[in-house]
Design a protein around this nucleic acid. Structure first.
Length: 693
RNA sequence: GGGAGCAUAGCUCAGUUGGUUCAGAGCAUCUGCCUUACAAGCAGAGGGUCCGCGGUUCGAGCCCGUGUGCUCCCACCA
């Protein structure tokens, strides 16, 4: 047990206009006096020193002398401490250890007497000597008058400062000494600090390790007793003389008492205080499985330590650190391996959501409006790990639209099912490509999930479904109007869609489950959250590169169509000039469909009257009914040319820099050479195209 | 006052030993489309002195110093 100066929890600070009283204290053995300034003149009877700054020249001659507290004439020392600010008030501070936190610390440091002038009910105590039994605020008024009458009050000035009010009762909180139970923290903090610093326990995001480290390295003893009537009661018992015994329970306390005193206690009463809420909470990881009260039971063996704690960063110290300490102390093992910190949900303007602001969304209303999956999507997509969440309904709308998109994809696949053909062919390029793409993204998402980069994982899956699956893959395999689809292509598509639903399931459980069952009737098991099935070999990069090139070609030619204002329904003829015609094998069908080309041919020369565009190492000539506007095209090519030449210069400069060549890693130099080569090739191709225009 | 973090497109954010053409994504914006899954959509585009200054380096969005601005936690002046 130790004295506590004050607990400042549940205290609301408010700016209050007050009076600052300048009060004169007579110096012992001198005509001189020293003036202090205070807003609480009723506490002067608790003064046990006057403190000045050691550097303050005004008071140098008073160091070590004594002064008298007005009205009660207690003789108190004049001490010097850096704590006192010279330019505030008079530069002299009355020290009241019983009623001010800082004064208490000052008192401890300088071995000052402690005089508690207040009773529990806020009236003046016997120790105050005067105004005993009178309310503190009444005393303040009366004492000011008395001080003035007796010539101690020199002046009063208006002063605004912060005063603590009780959160529950809204009365001014009075710092007051009391006897409390404390827990010495240093020893139990050491292993807990080590566990996190050595990453036996990992924090996500890791930046919070700094906060934890700072706390644990500067840990203060913990006041664990509370004057409440609920909670775990302090396990301490007193006899009639106030001798105390601490034990696990009353039975053991009596045993201990008998051992210490050689007799049974006549009177034995448990302490009425309760433990701090967090003292109970820090037992949570093991005591929910009775790991302390019934050690080694089956459940605690299975569940302790657990894997991941999900919590908020503002309770790193209150709860996270304490659970780790309790785990190490009582279970001799860490309680969990990973801690994931969620952000605080804020409104669009960045304000914390709160009842008083009334800016919390009505979740059930949102679910009605957008759907449960969409609401989950909206929150998850805007939760970058470790950052606060700015809640914006637009994200929920995006989630709703995503639902709709997937629903429509399902509808399309159902339509195909009705007219598949038994004809089974080699899987077309699109099928092979998407398999690789799925494999690639699965690996990416798996990595993000293990790093708790949840919103990034969701974004990646979202893009895989919307862009790769719907916008590219489905369009690539889509049969012509009223044409049938090969059965195996349909089956692959169903498999892919299933795999996608599995990936998305943790984020959007309802629609994924539904689509999963509708894709294939009579599925026996439900979808559940499981780890990604890691592919048994890594993705085939050449197919992926080919797919990437295909996307770029399609986009590039669509851009030409747009810029040339060729109507969507109007077909074009496409000629490809390439040194590697093989890479286009099997892609003609897709390209024709995607850019609405009536035919595609290879060409070794420029096509007159066409629009030229260079994509990668290949030149494409677009022929349309419409007259081609080459001025725009020419300007674009020239612009690119200029850029490439500038780029080439910078690469060449780098390569001719001796210091670069001698210092850079060989693979970096190789890359630079490749860049140079690529740029030169591209410049040549564009030059040729420009010449012919 | 003590500590931590942040500053990249209009907004929210990625950018993983400093080296691909690195300046990105989503949303928003603009243009064109009622194309037979989807207008809650399709196709395309524009948009940035990577906060300022200095340094290290062959090379800096990334490393170091410094200034400015913001956020959070803790303490709080009689």
């Amino acid at each position: 047990k130790a004295l506590t100066a004050l607990s400042d929890e549940e205290v609301i600070r408010k700016e209050i206009k007050q009076k600052l009283y300048h009060i004169r204290y007579q110096i012992d053995g001198s005509d001189e006096s020293i003036v202090i300034a205070t807003v609480r003149p009723e506490t002067i009877m608790g003064d046990t020193a006057i403190c000045v700054n050691p550097k303050d020249e005004r008071y140098l001659h008073l160091h070590g002398k004594f002064a008298f507290v007005p009205l009660i004439n207690r003789r108190i020392p004049i001490i010097a401490d850096e704590y006192v600010t010279m330019d505030f008030g008079t530069g002299a501070l009355k020290v009241t250890p019983a009623h001010d936190t800082n004064d208490y610390q000052l008192g401890t440091k300088h071995n000052l007497e402690v005089v508690d002038v207040l009773n529990d009910d806020g009236t003046m105590s016997e120790a105050a000597q005067i105004y005993v039994g009178l309310d503190r605020f009444e005393t303040r008024k009366k004492i000011a008058v008395e001080l003035e009458e007796k010539g101690y009050l020199l002046k009063t000035e208006e002063y605004t400062s912060e005063v603590g009010f009780s959160e529950r009762t809204d009365v001014v909180v009075e710092p007051r000494l009391s006897l409390q139970w404390w827990l010495s923290m240093k020893d139990i903090a050491t292993p807990a600090l080590k566990a996190v610093m050595e990453e036996e326990i990992q924090f996500f995001p890791p930046k919070f390790r700094n906060v934890y480290k700072h706390w644990m390295e500067n840990i203060k003893d913990w006041c664990v007793s509370r004057q409440l009537w609920w909670g775990h009661r302090i396990p301490a018992w007193y006899d009639e003389q106030g001798n105390v015994v601490v034990a696990e329970n009353e039975e053991k306390a009596i045993e201990k008492y008998v051992a210490d005193h050689g007799k049974n206690p006549v009177f034995f009463k448990q302490d009425e205080d309760c433990l701090d809420t967090w003292f109970s909470s820090w037992l949570w990881p093991f005591e929910v499985f009775k790991g302390y009260s019934n050690p080694g039971n089956k459940e605690i063996q299975y569940y302790y330590p657990t894997n991941t704690l999900v919590t908020a960063p503002e309770i790193i110290f209150f709860w996270v650190a304490r659970m780790i300490m309790a785990g190490e102390e009582y279970m001799k093992a860490i309680p969990f391996k990973e801690v994931y910190f969620t952000g605080i949900v804020r409104d669009k303007q960045g304000r914390k959501m709160s009842k008083s602001l009334g800016n919390s969304p009505d979740l059930l209303g949102l679910i009605d409006q957008y759907g449960a999956d969409a609401s989950r999507f909206g929150i998850m997509i805007s939760s970058p790990a470790g950052n606060d969440i700015l809640f914006d309904e637009a994200a929920l709308e995006q989630g709703r639209n995503f639902n709709n998109k997937m629903w429509n994809a399902l509808k399309l696949i159902h339509m195909w099912k009705e007219r598949t053909t038994d004809l089974v062919t080699e899987p077309p390029f699109a099928v092979r490509w998407f398999e690789e793409r799925l494999r690639q993204v699965t690996e990416e998402v798996d990595l993000m999930m293990t790093q708790f980069r949840l919103s990034e994982a969701l974004k990646t899956i979202y893009s895989l479904i919307w862009d790769d699956f719907c916008s590219w893959y489905l369009e690539w395999v889509k049969p012509g109007y009223e044409q049938p689809l090969e059965e195996n292509v349909h089956d692959f598509t169903v498999d892919y869609f299933t795999e996608l639903m599995q990936m998305l399931h943790p984020f959007m459980p309802f629609i994924t489950e539904e689509i999963y069952h509708q894709l294939e009737k009579n599925r026996e098991v439900d979808l559940c959250v499981r780890q990604c099935q890691m592919p048994n070999h890594s993705a085939n990069s050449s197919i992926l590169e080919q797919g990437q090139m295909l996307k770029e070609i399609i986009t590039g030619i669509r851009d030409v169509r747009n810029k040339q204002q060729i109507k969507p329904k109007e077909t074009i003829k496409l000629f490809i000039q390439t040194e590697t015609p093989d890479i286009f094998k099997g892609l003609y069908g897709i390209i024709e469909k995607q850019v609405n080309a009536s035919e595609i041919n290879l060409s070794t020369t420029n096509i007159p009257g066409s629009f030229t565009t260079v994509i990668g190492k290949n030149t494409f000539y677009v022929v349309s009914e419409k007259p081609i506007d080459t001025s725009h095209q020419k300007a674009e090519l020239e612009k690119e040319m200029e850029y490439l030449k500038g780029f080439l210069v910078s690469v060449e400069k780098k390569l001719s820099n001796e210091r670069f060549v001698s210092n850079a890693k060989p693979e970096v130099i190789e890359l630079e050479k490749k860049k140079k080569n690529d740029a030169e090739n591209k410049i040549r191709i564009i030059e040729e195209s420009l010449e012919k225009m």
